[in-house]
């Protein structure tokens, strides 16, 4: 209250009335205009873990794309003579990548023992058939990501429209569609896969079909719940009173407002799908030999884990990194999109 006003110079002009400002001037918005997405991305950027995950995944995806055309060596080519070679880089001066292994208490240069020509080395070693593990890992990751991509596709093509229709129509349609979802989700995934295996041969095909049957359920549920609340929002009512058709309402109003839910859920369903494939391959009903996937690599590595741990370490590390990165990114996205955490 005790504003010190002695330093204010008052003069005759001080008390001259000033015409009120232009109202337009006052209503000007000075802050930069950010769309919802720009704002969300700004918030995402602040989340170090999510940003790091994002770039990590970007690199992994890039490498996988490269692997479609190029791998250091043919991932399925067998060199029985070069079986079970440990990892080695260049001249073997990097610890852990020396090409030497502990055999019965003695450090042995396995590369020399197998008479591998100088200049040939395997970054992550070879498996029991002498196949280059690095190339196989590249292929495996690519396959896992492909499965993730297909899972996204099912989420978007089946889950999203299913949820929107169910939520928007409401009433009987909704009841029936929800019963169908309940029935599907009450059957364990594994049972579905085994049923698939009875019909098809094991392989990418049956995994994909199994995912197609069950993978989109969570997405459909989330989208339906969100649609139910969006549908009573006044801007949707306003669109209806203006005469907008349901299809256009879905495209113009629902999907943009569902987009954050959809993006976040995809980020969660990709690792789920990857893990699902790995699990199936691991127990031997997934991708058939000789093709590599993260699951088959783990399964093969596990058999010799006690003696040749590197064969399992690297695929295990990679799958863990992918899973964690997707989850961290999804968490980050959720926080970024959720207005409640807005500062």
């Amino acid at each position: 209250m005790a504003d010190n006003t002695s330093d204010i110079k008052l003069n005759a002009d001080s008390f001259k009335p000033v015409a009120a400002n232009n109202v337009d001037e006052q209503e000007k918005i000075s802050a930069p205009s950010l769309t919802f997405f720009q704002d969300a991305i700004r918030r995402l950027r602040k989340n170090k873990a999510a940003v790091f995950s994002f770039w990590l995944l970007a690199i992994i995806i890039l490498i996988s794309i490269v692997s479609i055309w190029w791998t250091p060596s043919d991932p399925n080519a067998q060199h029985v003579a070069y079986a079970n070679l440990p990892p080695k880089i260049a001249n073997g001066s990097i610890p852990g990548f020396t090409g030497k292994a502990n055999v019965g208490g003695n450090i042995v240069d396995k590369y020399a023992a197998a008479k591998v020509p100088k200049g040939t080395y395997y970054v992550l070693g070879t498996d029991y058939l002498g196949r280059d593990l690095f190339s196989r890992l590249m292929k495996g990751v690519a396959l896992s990501l492909l499965i993730g991509l297909l899972a996204t596709l099912f989420d978007l093509v089946i889950g999203v429209p299913y949820g929107i229709i169910s939520g928007w129509k409401g009433g009987k349609t909704d009841t029936i569609m929800q019963r169908i979802i309940e029935i599907i989700s009450s059957i364990p995934n594994l049972v579905v896969v085994i049923l698939m295996l009875l019909l098809f041969t094991p392989g990418l095909g049956s995994i994909v079909v199994a995912m197609g049957i069950t993978g989109w359920i969570t997405m459909a549920r989330l989208v339906r719940a969100e649609t139910l609340t969006l549908k009573t929002q006044e801007y949707i009512l306003a669109a209806r009173t203006l005469g907008e058709s349901p299809l256009r309402i879905a495209l113009k109003h629902l999907i943009p407002n569902l987009s954050s839910t959809i993006i976040i859920q995809t980020m969660f369903s990709i690792p789920t799908a990857i893990f699902f494939e790995a699990f199936l391959s691991f127990i031997g009903i997934g991708i058939p030999a000789p093709n590599a996937s993260l699951g088959t690599l783990l399964s093969d590595g596990q058999k010799t884990f006690r003696f040749l741990p590197y064969q399992m370490w690297y695929p295990a590390a990679v799958i863990s990194i992918i899973m964690i990165a997707f989850n961290l990114l999804a968490d980050g996205l959720r926080d970024a999109f959720d207005p409640k955490t807005q500062e």
Partner: peptide
């Protein structure tokens, strides 16, 4: 409040009024 004030005076834009 000066910009919305029909009674605004020059001083209102210069200094915060005391109580």
């Amino acid at each position: 409040f000066a910009p919305r004030n029909p009674y605004a005076m020059a001083i209102d834009y210069e200094a915060m009024p005391p109580f």
